[in-house]
Design a protein around this nucleic acid. Structure first.
Length: 573
RNA sequence: GAUUCGUUAGCUCAGCAGGUAGAGCAUCUGCCUUUUAAGCAGAGGGUCCCGAGUUCGAGCCUCGGACGAAUCACCA
């Protein structure tokens, strides 16, 4: 491995620590009795506090002024300034701990434990006066240096690729990032509390499924060796949760990781989290109330208010949310009444609206396209869109007043779908027919139409109580609640293309050409990055360059001879 | 998948009419006992994404490729 100069210096420091008898990676627990944010919060009111503290964290910056120094320590709660004074760190004659260990062998990024007392500097900053420090973990890689003054950030570490691939660095260096994920956990906790309070059962259902059902999406395929059969990563858990309602639970829910083998962008990651809930004896009107109450509570728990700033908008989650039918929305935003149209007329309407269609699209899909294109972005404030055409909703019960429609709603927020719910279809005969219609869509070429899950049909043939079900996208909810622009910002480790391995030549490539082990490691630093470059130079020039390098760096190895170089060149194709 | 832009030091970025690569921070050496994007003086650090071509000469031009970003298209 080739190390940069700074990495090499840190490794040298590591060795020097060891030779001073300091273990750079000690085993023992380091007892902590205070945290940065707590000190900053409480010290101003009572300066008798924190006079014997012990904290641990990472050094984020250092300002050394001879026999005294300031540094910034970041622990799990925040940052606090440290003050080091040579004669306090080293009370006796031996000043090694300060002069050598602190000043020279420690670096930004190292993790240390410190003991001391809190005071306020002339500049008015709450600071820990360190009387003793312990190396807890030496950092071998330099961190990006981000500086900040008066809220202005300099040299920010913002490259999304690096931030997502090395989320640990992102978390170390960008303080706000941690907070997003704390909020994510709060959203989930708040939702779980809400559902548990109502007595619903949190369950777990298979991620590996023989038949990927419950949604219109392309699945990931895998293979089970012992069964010698394909298995799919779940695209939804709906059909399993309904089986549990058949089994007699009143209400079941699951926070589920689902996997969809489709495009990736700022709203889509191949794996994402959904909470799905099914409750017996309820309908979609009841579910709307549950949904809005739940979302309202989450906003309140997180922000203490129902108003949440998202991008340019201030979104108010105060219940009740607005309700509108999908056909009404289409009429409002396009002027077309599509409720009586057949497939041909819909296709023509799409054309008039400038919406692309393809022959695999049925009636439902066409309506969905119009809605998605012309209406969806308009719903910034939470709005329930309801009563979708039957073709779009193969698992949903027909509307009690209009059999062309279903009792389905989606919750739209900030111009995007956030939740989706039905009065669930529990008529097994109708359900079988709808699945068969889906199969005909498959034959038309819609590769997202659903497979027929025979066992699911068998289950509901035993009788499923009238049930309402709802799924809500957790990632999207977190995006809204934390005002993040992309799903990658609310996932610790969003899916990335595998990191490209750079084709890099190493000393070994030169050894393979017959270069001696002693010389091989110097070939690249001496200016021959690839064997090819040798070939492009005259042997005499190579000799001059290498021996010049040897002299400059005072290498204790034999000078290169002409005949050696000739033989290397003969070995290069 | 399409279009546009990008890839240069550990990090953030300059670079030009094609002539041996620059800045700030970081690093190293020295000075500095309450500083704060600390300061001052000095030094080191680069396979200019990869490959081919044009050229006496390519970070820069041409072609191909990889990776990324933004926008658009599709799915939650």
């Amino acid at each position: 491995m080739q190390l940069s100069e700074q990495e090499q210096i840190r490794r040298d420091a590591l060795n020097e620590l060891t030779s001073l008898g300091i273990n750079p990676y000690p085993q023992a627990e380091y007892e902590v009795n205070a945290y940065a944010d707590d000190i900053l919060k409480r010290f101003p009111d009572d300066q008798s506090l924190f006079q014997e503290v012990s904290l641990a964290g990472r050094i984020m910056s250092r300002r050394i002024m001879g026999a005294a120094a300031f540094a910034e320590l970041k622990d799990s709660t925040g940052r606090i300034q440290l003050y080091f004074k040579r004669d306090d760190i080293c009370s006796g004659d031996d000043k090694t701990m300060y002069n050598t260990v602190f000043k020279r062998l420690l670096d930004i990024g190292d993790i240390i434990g410190v003991k001391g007392y809190v005071f306020i500097t002339k500049m008015g900053e709450i600071t820990l006066h360190v009387t003793e420090f312990t190396v807890l973990s030496k950092s071998l890689r330099p961190l990006p240096i981000v500086k900040e003054k008066d809220g202005k950030i300099y040299d920010a570490f913002t490259d999304p690729d690096q931030r997502y691939r090395q989320r640990y660095v992102d978390l170390i260096v960008n303080d706000q990032v941690k907070d997003t994920f704390v909020k994510r956990a709060q959203v989930i906790r708040s939702m779980r509390d809400f559902l548990n309070d109502k007595g619903y059962l949190e369950v777990e259902t298979p991620v590996l499924q023989a038949i990927p059902g419950g949604a219109a999406a392309r699945p990931f395929v895998t293979h089970h060796n012992a069964l010698n059969t394909p298995l799919y990563l779940r695209i939804a858990n709906e059909l399993y949760l309904k089986r549990l309602i058949v089994g007699g639970y009143e209400g079941v829910y699951e926070f589920a990781k689902d996997f969809r083998n489709e495009g990736m962008d700022r709203f889509h990651n191949p794996e994402f989290t959904q909470m799905e809930i099914y409750v017996a004896y309820k309908d979609y009107f009841w579910m709307m109330v549950l949904t809005e109450k739940m979302v309202e509570k989450i906003a309140l728990d997180l922000h203490g208010t129902t108003k949440v700033k998202v991008g340019q908008h201030l979104i108010d989650f105060k219940t009740p949310f607005k309700r509108q039918t999908i056909l009404g929305a289409i009429e409002e935003f396009t002027g077309f009444d599509v409720s009586q149209m057949n497939e041909e007329e819909l296709r023509a309407t799409c054309k008039k609206l400038g919406i692309e269609t393809d022959p695999s699209m049925g009636k439902g899909k066409l309506i969905d396209e119009i809605f998605g294109e012309k209406c969806e972005p308009n719903f910034i404030q939470p709005t329930f869109i309801m009563d979708y055409p039957v073709e779009m909703s193969p698992l949903c019960k027909r509307h009690r007043e209009n059999p062309e429609l279903t009792e389905r709603f989606e919750l739209m927020v900030n111009g995007k779908e956030l939740a989706n719910a039905y009065t669930e279809l529990n008529d097994p005969i109708d359900q079988r027919k709808r699945f068969e219609e889906q199969m005909s869509l498959v034959e038309k070429g819609d590769d997202e139409a659903m497979f027929i899950d025979q066992d699911f049909l068998r289950a509901i043939e035993y009788g499923m109580p009238p049930t309402s079900g709802m799924g809500i996208g957790i990632d999207r909810l977190v995006m809204i609640m934390t005002n993040q622009h992309s799903i990658q910002e609310v996932l610790f480790f969003p899916q990335m293309r595998p990191e490209a391995k750079k084709k890099v030549f190493t000393a070994q490539d030169f050894v393979n050409l017959g270069v001696s082990e002693l010389w091989a490691e110097h070939m690249i630093p001496a200016g021959f990055a690839a064997p090819k470059q040798l070939k492009e130079s005259k042997p005499s020039a190579i000799q001059q360059k290498l021996n010049g390098y040897r002299k400059k760096n005072k290498l204790d190895i034999p000078a290169v001879q002409m005949d050696e170089i000739e033989s290397w060149l003969n070995n290069i194709e």
